[in-house]
Amino acid sequence: MIHMTSPARKTAAIALLMNMTILGVFPLDVILPSFPSMARYFDTAVADIALSVSLFSIGLSLSLLLVGPLSDRVGRKRVLIIGMGVAVMGSAGCAMAQDFAWFMVFRMIQAVGCGSFVLSQALVQDLFIGKEQERLRIAMVTASGICISVSPLFGSWLQTWLDWRGSFQVFVIIGLLLILKAWLLLDDPSPPSDVRLSIVNAYRQVLRDRSFVGYWLISALAFSCHFAFIVVSPIILMEQLGLTPYRFALVLLLYGAAYVLGGIAAGWMNRWMDGNTQIVTGQRLIASAGVLMLALYHLWGLTVMTVMLPMILCTAGTTITRPIATSRAMGRFPLAAGTCASAGNVIIFVCGGLVSSLVSQSGEQVMNVLAITFLVLSGIGMGLNAREQRSAHAA
């Protein structure tokens, strides 16, 4: 890959990356409102349909481990197109499945193909330079948050008009367009010989770098704050506050607006502040969100506002922290961007899964545990960043 110089090609590359961001929410988030309909169609329990999400995550994680290093060896374009082709076939199979067993098979196939989405971070590293990378990652984090927030409402519309097959059919259409864009836009020159390592050696090389792991952990801890809320939001807003699914979707739209504000703030800070200041500012906002959530909850109890006001603050901190931390991690091994992206996203998924599992099991204390989680994770993030700053000055 080479860095892009043509404005038209840069615009096309940004459109490709944003399409990958949008498509990434379909397999897990857009399908959620269709669970009851799918359970009726396949004559099974909703819990069995939820199991497909767990299996999807397993297939995705296994795929992530292979996709990045393979793209370093044979090129991004080839791996992305093949991966997206597998995901499209899996999604089409899900839409046509007549029984639950075949649905689960095609769901796993879709998951394996969706591992290619991790290449968005590698493509940012390949195609853009310097501040362009940071600004684009800010835009991608913002777009991802907005899509996650809007997806339940979009999913309910698809369920109304196209039934449960709708999300899979739309995935196929967008996926085919993405394959076409990748085919026309991307080049695939031979990777440098010094990055053609075995998968095990490639991971050993990047994971032995303390700064690489440290910055990915900072990004992962910020992501975990957002992900923990997404996981427990149905418990807080629907089960405890009694919101209908439609009202729940509307509240998450407000959460999406917070990503827009956070993205604007992150873009402004990226122009005027150094990376360390951005990370510290984002972590402090997440910590402030934890303090505010505890204060509002104990003063006024559980309401939509006592939940969402702190989450808006937390979201701003997440949006500010993640892009710069990710850019610093990815910059450690620019010639092995695929391996870096895979390793980093595995760290993110593991952290997000562990933290959200802990918070989701806290029952009636979920608000207190969520707020304390923000304080603890932001504190660890600031400690990791301080360590990296000391290492940089010592060097």
Score class of each variant (00 low, 15 high):
residue 175 G to D: 03
residue 251 V to Q: 05
residue 344 G to Y: 05
residue 363 G to C: 11
residue 334 P to V: 07
residue 9 R to S: 15
residue 251 V to G: 05
residue 20 M to H: 03
residue 197 L to C: 04
residue 119 L to A: 04
residue 274 D to I: 09
residue 365 Q to M: 15
residue 106 F to Y: 11
residue 229 F to Y: 13
residue 17 L to T: 04
residue 359 V to M: 00
residue 361 Q to D: 12
residue 196 R to Y: 04
residue 41 Y to H: 07
residue 329 A to K: 07
residue 288 S to H: 02
residue 104 M to C: 10
residue 233 S to C: 06
residue 382 M to D: 07
residue 288 S to Q: 05
residue 234 P to F: 01
residue 21 T to H: 01
residue 144 S to M: 14
residue 207 L to A: 07
residue 7 P to L: 07
residue 244 T to G: 11
residue 263 G to Q: 05
residue 384 L to R: 09
residue 107 R to D: 06
residue 53 V to Q: 07
residue 137 R to F: 15
residue 317 G to Y: 00
residue 172 V to F: 01
residue 119 L to S: 04
residue 336 A to N: 13
residue 41 Y to N: 04
residue 359 V to R: 00
residue 112 V to H: 02
residue 187 D to V: 14
residue 83 G to D: 03
residue 187 D to I: 12
residue 194 D to F: 12
residue 95 A to E: 00
residue 30 V to A: 03
residue 41 Y to L: 04
residue 170 V to A: 03
residue 12 A to Q: 15
residue 106 F to V: 06
residue 262 G to T: 06
residue 257 A to H: 01
residue 119 L to C: 06
residue 270 N to W: 00
residue 206 V to G: 01
residue 77 K to Q: 08
residue 354 L to M: 09
residue 150 V to Y: 05
residue 124 V to A: 08
residue 110 Q to Y: 04
residue 26 F to W: 02
residue 25 V to W: 03
residue 374 F to I: 02
residue 81 I to P: 00
residue 280 V to T: 14
residue 340 C to H: 06
residue 61 S to Y: 07
residue 11 T to I: 12
residue 175 G to L: 02
residue 64 L to N: 03
residue 8 A to R: 13
residue 199 I to F: 08
residue 99 D to P: 08
residue 329 A to T: 09
residue 78 R to N: 10
residue 353 G to C: 05
residue 120 S to T: 13
residue 195 V to M: 13
residue 349 F to R: 03
residue 228 A to S: 10
residue 221 L to Q: 01
residue 383 G to R: 08
residue 136 L to K: 10
residue 269 M to V: 02
residue 12 A to V: 10
residue 74 V to C: 10
residue 9 R to P: 08
residue 211 S to C: 13
residue 260 V to Y: 09
residue 81 I to N: 03
residue 249 A to R: 06
residue 371 A to S: 06
residue 18 M to F: 14
residue 351 C to L: 10
residue 57 S to Y: 12
residue 215 Y to V: 09
residue 52 S to H: 09
residue 382 M to E: 12
residue 81 I to A: 00
residue 349 F to G: 05
residue 99 D to M: 14
residue 194 D to K: 09
residue 81 I to H: 00
residue 367 M to Y: 05
residue 57 S to Q: 12
residue 86 V to E: 00
residue 9 R to W: 11
residue 386 A to P: 02
residue 209 D to N: 15
residue 31 I to N: 01
residue 176 L to N: 00
residue 211 S to G: 13
residue 92 A to N: 07
residue 255 Y to F: 15
residue 291 V to Y: 02
residue 40 R to Y: 08
residue 77 K to V: 09
residue 79 V to W: 05
residue 151 S to G: 09
residue 128 F to Q: 01
residue 195 V to N: 14
residue 116 S to Q: 08
residue 114 C to Q: 08
residue 235 I to M: 14
